[in-house]
Structure formats: C-alpha cells, structure tokens
Computed example of a mutant assay.
Amino acid sequence: MSVRTLRQAVADAIKAAMPSLKACATHPGRFDAGELARLATRSPAIFVAVLGITDQSVQHDEVTGTLTFGAYALAGDSHVADRDAAALAMVDALALLVPGNRWGLAESVSNPERVRSENLYSGQVDRIGVSLWAVTWQQRMVIGQTMDAAALAALDLFATCDLQYPISDDAPVAEDAVQLPQED
C-alpha cells in the first residue's frame, strides 16, 4: 500500500469518528501563516500529514517503515465555542482515538507509539484568528512490496507529475499533468 493511501485511510478513520468536523482531509505537511488564513474558513478541521518515514526495512518482500503522522486540529471562533475550546475538544477526541488504533489496515504492523499533543500557538497564529494543535505519533506500517530492476524500469518513474491543488475554498480543485523531460 502506498504512503498516500495509508495517510488517506487515517484521515478517513478520523472523519468517521468525528463527523461534526467541517473538514477532515490529508495535507502535505506543516502549515505557514498564509495557508492557515486560507484554511481558517474550513474550521473546525483536522488535517492529516505524514511528516517522515524512518527505519525502513525489507522482510519477506515487504517494505516496512515507521511513519510519523501529524493530525493538525484547526479551529476558529464560532457561536458554539471559542477557538481554543474547539481545538482542545478535537485534541481530546484524538487522545481517545489514536492510541491502539490500527485504522482498519492490515498494513499496520504496530499500534501508534510516542503519541504527543503540542499547542502550536504563536502571536502570528493568534492574529490569523485560529487555534492550532498537532497530535503526532509514530506507527510501523507496510509501505510497499519490493521490486526487481525490470519491474522498476517498467514503471517509467517520474515521466508524469500529476498535481491537484485548491485555488480557493469556493472553487473546484485545479489539476495538472506535467510531462517531465526525460534523458535518453
């Protein structure tokens, strides 16, 4: 299973467990101020990222690795709760959901370990009008099958780069397929 598919499975499981979220989606990584301001309208939300992979190994033709996941809880003020209370409610829910969860995946080799919640408050985050927390954990998972040289060559890696990115919250997702130059 690909890392992208594993990340999506974790996001789907969180969304199923927390249906009152306005958004629960995958994310490529950490946030900058501009992106937080753009995503603030989608709160309360949780964005799931894979922050890294360590300890990759091959056994019995399976590639496993320890994935570091981050679930970012983003909340703005609303008539229901202030942003701090809303973010903490999501952190509480994740604290109950993450430990022991294998996300319904046969590829999960271990339970989540080193589960940690961190307040990402700063003056800049406060000026944007949001509260941001990160719940991170490490989990050993099967990330793929080994391939021989002929199978790798047949993939024609990096010939095409498929991109999907939001232009704005109200617009559909833009998509590009870029043909990358190839050496002979």
Rank of each mutant, 00 (worst) to 15 (best):
Q8P: 03
L94M: 12
S168P: 02
Q138I: 00
L132I: 08
A154G: 14
D61I: 02
L152E: 11
G129C: 10
R114H: 15
P28Y: 13
T66Y: 03
R83H: 05
L51R: 14
G129N: 11
L120K: 12
D156I: 01
L67D: 11
Q139D: 09
A149P: 01
W103S: 12
L21N: 10
T66A: 14
H79E: 07
T160M: 01
D82F: 00
R127N: 13
E62S: 06
D92A: 12
G29F: 09
E62L: 14
A71Y: 08
T26M: 13
E35T: 08
D162M: 05
G70T: 09
A85C: 02
I128V: 15
V130M: 07
V173L: 13
A171G: 05
D82G: 05
H60I: 04
V48L: 13
V142E: 03
R83N: 06
I143T: 14
P112C: 13
M147I: 02
A106F: 01
L88C: 01
L163V: 15
L132R: 03
G129V: 14
V10C: 06
D170C: 01
G65C: 09
P181K: 08
S20H: 10
S2G: 10
E118N: 07
Q124I: 11
R127H: 09
Q59R: 14
L39E: 05
D77A: 03
A45E: 04
